[in-house]
Design a protein around this nucleic acid. Structure first.
Length: 272
DNA sequence: AGTGCGGCCTGTCCGC
DNA sequence: TGCGGACAGGCCGCAC
């Protein structure tokens, strides 16, 4: 499901619901997620207070009194508030119940998500330690992308989706950022000039910023904490629009598979 | 070191 | 109406 804007939308939604609350009970109905949910997760969490809800890349970090709960939404995961004890539906895998009677419920049909615990600095966790800079970090600029791309022979689209290069960009926003930057997704990453990477860095920030402002993108099932869809789908210019007209030149938008992923672009407006 | 692919899962849709 | 296959917003682990 989620790329950075959807995770950030989730973070903003759950933060006011859980910050300052103390965990009373944890129900793990299905522990077989991307990695097994730790068998002692409930024992670890009960009695802990949630101090803050943070985000690193596409990971949510619940900063607790004794460590961090690391949550990844995978492809189809979401977190929603329910009343404690509300009947669980299919794929409602984990509940975090708080002492005030509120409950945060994790739902994830494909089970590519993750619930992990670390008592240490979460940024040093093996899953997080190799991550690249946040797209809004000052050092993530055109010069940075240009430098990191040298001698890379892969296409620029998988290059910007590489979370060790820059985090948060998934399949939707990669196509969108490249369209806004006028760069063909199949262009060889190592051959693009510095000015083109400067334009790309700007486009990445712009599209992610606008998507966050719109509450993320709902293609099939993403919903925010209130159960509402994200409205950035209305602002997608190429993703999912095969055969529709390019908003700039009116020629039909094309699609092809790149690195195993559907890719959308305008062959007239985007150059290699 | 960088690259490409299989695999993890369920649900949905499309063509036959 | 049923069925097989492809595909879906992520990403690890493995061969090369």
């Amino acid at each position: 499901m989620p790329e950075l804007p959807e995770v950030e939308t989730t973070r903003r939604g759950i933060a006011p619901l859980v910050t300052g609350k103390t965990i009373a009970r944890v129900v793990v109905r299905v522990p077989s997620l991307r990695w097994p949910v730790p068998a002692d997760l409930a024992r670890t969490l009960v009695g802990q207070t949630v101090l803050a809800v943070e985000r690193r890349a596409k990971y949510l970090l619940l900063r607790c009194s004794g460590g961090h709960l690391i949550i990844h939404l995978g492809m189809t995961g979401h977190l929603r508030p329910v009343l404690a004890g509300a009947p669980a539906r299919k794929h409602d895998h984990i509940d975090l119940e708080f002492t005030d009677g509120s409950c945060l419920r994790f739902h994830d049909p494909r089970r590519f998500g993750a619930f992990l615990w670390t008592p240490d600095d979460p940024h040093l966790h093996p899953l997080l330690v190799e991550l690249g800079p946040e797209p809004f970090a000052v050092e993530m600029d055109g010069a940075y992308l240009h430098r990191r791309s040298r001698r890379r022979r892969a296409a620029v689209k998988p290059f910007i989706m590489d979370q060790s290069v820059v985090v948060g960009i998934g399949n939707i926003y990669a196509s969108e950022a490249l369209f806004r930057a006028g760069i063909h997704p199949g262009a060889e990453a190592g051959r693009l000039s510095l000015p083109r990477y400067e334009r790309l860095a700007w486009a990445i920030r712009e599209v992610l910023d606008q998507a966050i402002a719109a509450g993320g993108t709902t293609i099939r099932d993403f919903a925010n904490t209130e159960g509402n869809p994200g409205y950035f789908a209305l602002q997608l210019q190429v993703y999912g629009r095969e055969g529709e007209t390019c908003p700039h030149c009116d020629r039909p938008i094309k699609t092809e598979r790149l690195g195993g992923r559907s890719t959308y672009y305008c062959s007239h407006c985007q150059k290699k």
